[in-house]
Every structure is written in structure tokens, then in C-alpha cells.
């Protein structure tokens, strides 16, 4: 019968509030970002589902703008980190600096201590720096010189990856890719949207005048409600079947962590639709963005990760 992830059940009123919030934020962000409604929605639901997002794109399509707009809309702090091969972990986490006056070490927090952290070109970061970031994403805390400090709540990392020079740069290792709930792709806008973008940036840039439509506490409460959305065994079994299909048809398929991510994303999607229980349609909606990047296809197969997920959706009984 009824079987939830947490003890409390989210009732209909809570869910309506969450859905409302999500729609408000999305609409607000779209004042700045033109034409990527689905991506914005996915980003907002990822925020509500406690996930992190990887944006892979060509340069200059608005990844930074998107992250900033989201942060602004929910009245959260925003920091940007540009990853380079010489970036040290302390550049991310912060460093203890010796204060001559007090003769003590003061901790200067790094950019990781913000609600919304944009990490540009994460694939150029050296391994140690990447692991510091991943620790923060996974455990919501960082360790500097032995001391552990928590990152703020809510906390979301939006990382970007350049899609141009694939062969000359490292792929993010599969283990790291797995930490991102979703991988999204903006792409070039279509003709009308591009014109619209140009129209908007003439004069004042909309990001400067963007005001928040939700508060930090609201986001925290919304995240809690989303975590309590009902998930029945039928859905759990469906998600498991999808994951297993990918494992059977690829060198590396979706891990249990991936399945959990899809489940959470499904909960957020259900809440977005004012429903306090997850239905298969929610799962299907979130499946591709949640699964595709975790899959390494069989080398002689001609399917990309995305195509394999689509095939799984087609062939797995609901």
C-alpha cells in the first residue's frame, strides 16, 4: 500500500504550494532566458529535488546568465568559479590565511560557500580540485586543513562543460558524471528567440532588474515537501526496470545512484504538476536528462546514451 521515502506524507496543499513556487520561479527566469522553457523547468525541479546539474554547451549561449537568474529568483547567493588546470583545491574551498595582527589563521571562504555555485569548464580542473567540489556536492561539506565546514542550504552546483573540443580534453570520469542529477543542453536559440534575446539586451540587461519571487526558507520547505511525495512500489519497480535495461545494453549502465536521482527528479516533476504522488509519466519525462550522461554505450553499438535511454523507455513495460 502506501510507502513513502520519509515518515511524513505530503498532502495536496503542500504540493500545490510547491507547484506554484516552481512555476513562479520558472516564469521569472524566463524573463532573462528566452526560449529554453524545458531546460529552465528541469533546472528548477533539480533545485527542488536536491540535485546538481551539468550544462554542456557551446560557448556563449547563456549558461552563466541562467545560473544567475535562478539564483536571483530565489533570493540565493551566487558564486562563479572558472576552472583551469592550475586551479588548486583551496581556490575553491577557501584558504586559511595568517593574520599578522591577531597572529591567527583566518578562514577566507572560497566560492563554494554560496547557494548557487556555477563551475565553468569543470573538465579542465585538476583531479584534486574536482574532488573538493565533489565532496561539497555529495556531502554538503568541505574540509580545509582538517576542519570540516558545511556549505549553505539550499546548495546547488551548476557545472558547465565545453562541447567543442571533445577529444583534446578529458571526459569527466564516469564516477563524477554520476554525481550530477541531470545533464542539460541549451543550444543555440531559434531565429525568433535569438531576435528576442537581442531585443532584450538593448538598454538595461534584464538580469539587473530581476527580483526574487521566492525566499530561501520557501525553497527549503519546498525541498522537504518534494522529498515526501508519495512513491509507490509500482514506480520504484519501473525505475529499476529502466536502470536494468540500460545495464544490459551498454558497457556501463545506470547505477543505483542514478535510479535514486531519477526517483527524486520524478517527485519534483509530480509536485510541479500539483500531484502528491509520482506517476510513470513523471518518470518518463525526467528519464533522458537524468540517465543519459551516466551511460557508456557499447563501443560497437551505434546508440548514444540518449538513444539508449529512449529505447529503454520504449521497450520497458510501464
Amino acid at each position: 500500500m502506501s510507502d513513502n521515502l520519509a515518515a511524513d506524507t505530503t498532502d495536496h496543499a503542500d504540493v500545490e504550494a510547491v507547484g506554484d513556487l516552481a512555476r513562479r520561479v520558472t516564469t521569472n527566469v524566463e524573463e532573462v532566458i528566452v526560449g529554453h522553457h524545458d531546460v529552465v523547468e528541469h533546472l528548477v525541479t533539480a533545485l527542488l529535488a536536491r540535485g546538481h546539474v551539468l550544462l554542456e554547451d557551446v560557448p556563449g549561449v547563456g549558461k552563466t546568465m541562467l545560473a544567475r537568474a535562478v539564483a536571483r529568483s530565489v533570493d540565493c547567493s551566487f558564486k562563479r568559479v572558472q576552472f583551469t588546470p592550475d586551479l588548486l583545491p583551496t581556490d575553491v574551498t577557501g584558504v586559511n590565511v595568517f593574520n599578522e595582527k591577531t597572529r591567527e589563521f583566518d578562514f577566507h571562504p572560497g566560492p563554494i560557500f554560496a547557494n548557487v555555485v556555477l563551475g565553468d569548464e569543470i573538465n579542465r580542473a585538476p583531479p584534486k580540485t574536482q574532488s573538493a567540489l565533489l565532496e561539497a556536492m555529495e556531502e554538503q561539506q568541505v574540509t580545509v586543513d582538517g576542519t570540516t565546514r558545511h556549505v549553505p542550504d539550499p546548495f546547488i552546483v551548476i557545472a558547465t562543460q565545453n562541447s567543442v573540443e571533445r577529444d583534446r580534453t578529458y571526459e569527466l570520469p564516469a564516477a563524477e558524471l554520476d554525481r550530477f542529477m541531470k545533464k542539460l543542453h541549451l543550444g543555440y536559440p531559434d531565429e525568433d528567440d535569438e531576435s528576442e534575446v537581442l531585443a532584450r539586451v538593448v538598454g538595461q540587461h534584464p538580469i539587473d532588474t530581476l527580483s526574487p519571487v521566492a525566499g530561501v526558507e520557501e525553497i527549503v520547505a519546498a525541498r522537504q515537501s518534494v522529498a515526501n511525495v508519495t512513491v509507490e512500489s509500482a514506480i520504484r519497480e519501473y525505475v529499476t526496470r529502466l536502470a536494468r535495461y540500460t545495464r544490459e545494453h551498454a558497457t556501463l549502465g545506470v547505477s543505483p545512484r542514478g535510479s535514486i536521482s531519477l526517483l527524486r527528479a520524478g517527485q519534483a516533476r509530480a509536485a510541479l504538476n500539483d500531484r502528491d504522488y509520482v506517476i510513470p509519466d513523471d518518470v518518463q519525462r525526467e528519464a533522458v536528462v537524468t540517465f543519459a550522461h551516466r551511460i557508456r554505450p557499447a563501443p560497437d553499438g551505434d546508440l548514444t546514451g540518449r538513444e539508449l535511454v529512449e529505447e529503454a523507455l520504449e521497450r520497458t513495460t510501464v
Partner: peptide, 15 residues
């Protein structure tokens, strides 16, 4: 096989 790194390059080389 043009220059490259990582797993992807290894797959291509083995192929």
C-alpha cells in the same frame, strides 16, 4: 588515429 586521451581514445585505438 589522431591524438587523443582517455578512455575514448583507448577504445578507438583498440578498435
Amino acid at each position: 588515429l589522431p591524438a587523443g586521451v582517455g578512455d575514448r581514445q583507448r577504445q578507438a585505438a583498440l578498435d
